[in-house]
Amino acid sequence: MSKLKPIEVLIVEDDARVAKVNRRFMEKIEGFQVVGIAANGQEAKVWLEEMRPQLVLLDVYLPDMKGIELVWYIRQHCKDIDIIMITAAEEIEVIQDALRGGVFDYLVKPVLFDRFKQSMEKYRLHLQTLSSHQRLDQKQVDQLLGHVQEPIPEKHLSKALPKGIDPVTLEKVVQVVQAHSEQGLTAEQVGKHLGASRTTARRYLEYLVSIKRIRADHTYGTIGRPERKYYAEQI
């Protein structure tokens, strides 16, 4: 199976040290590739025109313009490009403008790696959900917009979990399966999304089947052998 094309990222940041940190953070997360770093708004516009990245990491305070101006430039000229703000700006007016401009996330400096990684993984899952569906029901739209959180039921967390099942990984498995609920995924495919082995993925998947969080079904592959696929349970 061919490797998925990485998500191309443009960093727009005038502080070279911060830009270097953002690049280093990004290089630690699978599935992303920094294609350029712009130190001001004009450089960013050139990169946007020439590279058309999927994602822009954008600071608010740039030497030649406010980052919010660039948000609206992107919305007018590059509607298919997403934006995550990484900035020291905490003013409510700036945050409101960013949200109105449709930014995917807003990270306040100094940003810890765990929060940075959480944002990127959420964005990657967001893209996977959009690319794997032609239509979305209300539940899926709510999940996509972040209106509904669906944690593992309390009785299944921590103390109730069997040995070898981590609650954080368990929830990630649920999210991956939900993002591909129409076509279903095999244990091997889930493992690739998680960066884990097929055996590890199957252990989590079968546990989720046992608590009726997801369902499993057998299908036949191209060579006639049955394969077990996992699907999100529908309400």
Rank of each mutant, 00 (worst) to 15 (best):
A201T: 05
R100Y: 12
I74Y: 01
H193D: 04
I29H: 05
E121H: 01
T169S: 13
A187G: 14
E69T: 13
L208T: 09
V111A: 04
K229C: 05
P110L: 00
G67F: 00
H156K: 06
G36D: 12
I81M: 07
G36E: 06
M51L: 14
L112G: 15
W72F: 15
Q96P: 14
G164I: 06
L185F: 01
R75M: 01
K212Q: 15
K172V: 08
Q42K: 15
L136D: 04
Q76T: 03
K66S: 12
L208A: 02
V173Q: 04
V108L: 07
M120G: 01
R213M: 14
D142P: 01
D114K: 11
P167Y: 09
K212S: 14
S119G: 05
V9Q: 03
V168F: 15
V148W: 11
H147Q: 10
I68Y: 00
Q234C: 14
K28F: 08
D14C: 10
G184H: 11
R198K: 07
R215C: 12
R202Q: 02
V12H: 02
D14W: 05
K3S: 13
R203E: 07
E150V: 11
D59P: 04
R100W: 03
T87D: 06
P167C: 12
S131E: 13
R228E: 15
E93M: 07
I214G: 00
L107D: 02
L107Y: 00
F32D: 04
Q143D: 14
A98C: 05
Y204N: 01
T222C: 11
H147F: 11
V56E: 03
A88K: 08
I81G: 04
I92M: 13
Q138S: 14
P53L: 09
L4T: 13
Q42C: 04
T200W: 01
V35C: 07
W47L: 12
L4P: 09
K117D: 12
V94F: 10
I74C: 06
K139G: 15
R52F: 03
T199A: 11
P6T: 03
K20D: 15
K20F: 06
I92A: 15
Y207V: 06
K3Y: 11
Q134S: 12
L48Y: 01
E27D: 15
S131N: 10
F32W: 08
Q143T: 06
V190C: 00
E50S: 13
P53T: 05
I81Y: 07
T87E: 05
K122D: 02
E27W: 03
A160K: 13
S210C: 08
V168G: 08
R135D: 09
G191S: 15
A196D: 09
Q234R: 08
S181F: 05
K79L: 07
Q143K: 14
L194Q: 11
R215Y: 12
D64A: 04
Q76I: 03
G184L: 09
L205G: 00
G184M: 08
V34D: 05
D15Q: 08
T87A: 06
